[in-house]
């Protein structure tokens, strides 16, 4: 298939992820949409890597997956700690800080 097809698929996936982060109020779903965005960029890297016949893109995906894993781990730890204290995972409830 053409490279541009892969670009469009990765682009739509990225847009769906951004849509989810802005729309949903459930922290867990927001984190999953964040992962969707990172996954879309991984697809873009591998596609470009194949198109340019260059292995660097695939190697970058290693680092990207590692960063995503670390971020998810820390994010879920914070969500669980918040849930233990506030009994909810909706971002709307996290409004203790005002002026």
């Amino acid at each position: 298939m053409l490279m541009s097809h892969y670009l469009v698929v990765a682009g739509i996936l990225f847009s769906i992820g951004m849509f989810g982060v802005l729309l949903r109020r459930n922290t867990l779903v927001m984190l999953m949409c964040l992962e969707l965005m990172l996954n879309a960029v991984n697809l873009l890297f591998v596609a470009f890597s194949r198109y340019n016949l260059n292995l660097d893109g695939n190697l970058f995906v290693f680092f990207a997956i590692t960063v995503a894993a670390a971020e998810v781990a820390v994010g879920l730890a914070i969500v669980v700690a918040l849930f233990k204290r506030k009994d909810t995972v909706q971002v709307d409830a996290f409004t203790e800080m005002k002026n």
Binding site: F14, G17, M18, V21, T27, M30, L31, L34, M37, L38, V41, V67, E71, V74, G75, I78, V79, A81, L82, R85, K86, V91, F94, E96, M97
Partner: peptide, 20 residues
């Protein structure tokens, strides 16, 4: 502290978007 954890989750989501 609720404040610290809330700040953490907000920073994480916005920071994660900037990483993406």
């Amino acid at each position: 502290s609720n404040f610290s954890l809330e700040a953490g989750i907000k920073y994480l989501i916005i920071g994660g978007t900037s990483t993406a």
